Simulated assay, not measured.
Amino acid sequence: MERVILYVDDATHALGQLEQLRASGLRPTHWVLAACAPRMTSRISKWVSHSARENWRVKWFARLQETLAPALQADGAEFTAVLAQGPLLVLTQQLLLAHGAARVIDLRRPKVGAVLEPVQSGSAEAAPRAPGRNNGALSGGALGVGALMVLAQTLAE
């Protein structure tokens, strides 16, 4: 029985990535969905109580499960959902202990200018990445500076 642990923070992004995973031939019999709820800013604590924030996280988790459940159960596979709390490295270790050997795939939506928390220890090359995810790409600022330098050099000639 092949198991796959998926880290997800955006349902629509994850659905597109799941289609690419299925096209690549991945057909597990058990999905473990680790839902990473979006962080709220520190300023929101002035206006929203802790219990209201936790209620929002629970509702967000339920909507995520409703959206992804049909895609995860499409081939008769079963899925287990977990709401991530705390460091993701610790959660990965707990899930591997609870479910046995499994592939860990990060389907979280990349954010501009933000570094995502790692889900596995070890080198970045050893960790499997979702298809279409270019973690080694240059940022937009670096590309802009490079284009500006090329333009300046061609104008100087």
Rank of each mutant, 00 (worst) to 15 (best):
L138W: 09
R109I: 06
A147E: 09
L18Q: 07
G144P: 03
K46M: 13
G132M: 08
S123P: 00
F79N: 01
E157C: 15
A77W: 10
L138G: 02
V150N: 00
S121F: 06
Q153Y: 02
T80V: 14
V145R: 04
K59C: 03
S51F: 02
A142V: 15
P128G: 08
F79T: 11
L18M: 06
G122V: 01
W60F: 04
T41W: 14
S24P: 02
V150D: 01
G76W: 09
G76H: 06
Q17W: 00
G113E: 04
A52Y: 03
G144N: 02
P38H: 11
S121E: 07
V4E: 00
L88R: 12
E66R: 11
G146Y: 00
W47S: 12
D10C: 02
W60G: 01
A142N: 04
A62G: 06
L18R: 07
A114R: 13
A37N: 10
V48D: 09
P87N: 15
S42W: 15
A34L: 12
T67C: 09
E125L: 13
G141P: 00
G25H: 05
L68K: 07
P128M: 10
L26F: 04
A34C: 11
Q120C: 13
L143W: 05
L155T: 12
L88V: 09
L95A: 05
A152S: 12
L72R: 04
R109T: 14
I5T: 02
H99C: 04
V90F: 06
A35S: 10
T67V: 14
L68T: 10
A126V: 03
V8L: 03
R3D: 01
R103N: 04
A34F: 02
P38Y: 05
G136Y: 03
A101D: 15
P38N: 13
D9T: 07
L96I: 03
